[in-house]
Amino acid sequence: MTGMSDKGLTQKVLIVGTSHTGAFYMARERIKTGYPGLEVSYFGMPGRVFSAALFEDGILRMADISARQLPWMDRQEIDFAPFSLIIQVGERFTLNHVMRLMAFHDVLEEDERSGRAPMSSAALTAFLTGMVQSRVDHIRGRFGADDRYCILPAPYPLARSTAPGPKHEYGLTALSLRSFADRWMARYEEIISERMQAAGLDVFLQPHETRAGQFMTQDRYARPGTDLTAPEGQVDHRHMNSDYGWQVFCAIAEHRLGLTPEGDALSTQQQMTG
């Protein structure tokens, strides 16, 4: 392990956000073992509950106390003050709209033609920027700009979600068929980085080693029992397993704290990254 030589000095890290915090919570034992110098807290809520939660004077509290109390959520509010790193999980940066915008238009300056309505590169870039900026403004307006924040977008849906069946990702599937998709999704991510940086916010995009191509997540990060053979209500292509939580946490820890995991956990992480 590097960067944590002073024994007894722990850094407090908060992982807060939508249901995507679950992947990190499921990896909590590995994180604890791999990063003994970190004291990690988890505060997760379903997306709509998180969106409605109030943030005042550095404290995030659920707006509706009757909202579902999850078993591992032992409190209804969290004070950001003690934490030196706050990882906000689950922002989608209007991903679905972005994918549909790209999938269902022909970009005039691109060679591919599908017969759909044409749109200029300039307009598409402006629309992507406008949509991303509105989310950046929302984050900044809600939480302010704070060096301790690291915004982690929600993972891209699993590659398997393009197969027909429950929870089929229609926009993602349509986009994956467009020849320019990778290029424009890369542009979208550049815009996210640019706009967040301009707003004084740190964003950590999904690590490439977890992806299947530019904008899907590898199926090995699926939670067990959520594939197309599961009862329809349990099929889920968006929420990842503990391996994903571990993998991404390691990447953020290195990015923000200069830390790599210790011991057995290290080898696990190395195996994951190949």
Binding site: H20, G47, R48, W72, T94, H239
Partner: peptide, 21 residues
């Protein structure tokens, strides 16, 4: 409406599963 929101039911499932882990 936050159209881009993850499906609420699945959100709940993901969090509940995390609690069981």
């Amino acid at each position: 409406e936050e159209e881009d929101e993850d499906d609420d039911l699945v959100c709940e499932e993901a969090l509940i599963e995390a609690a069981r882990s």
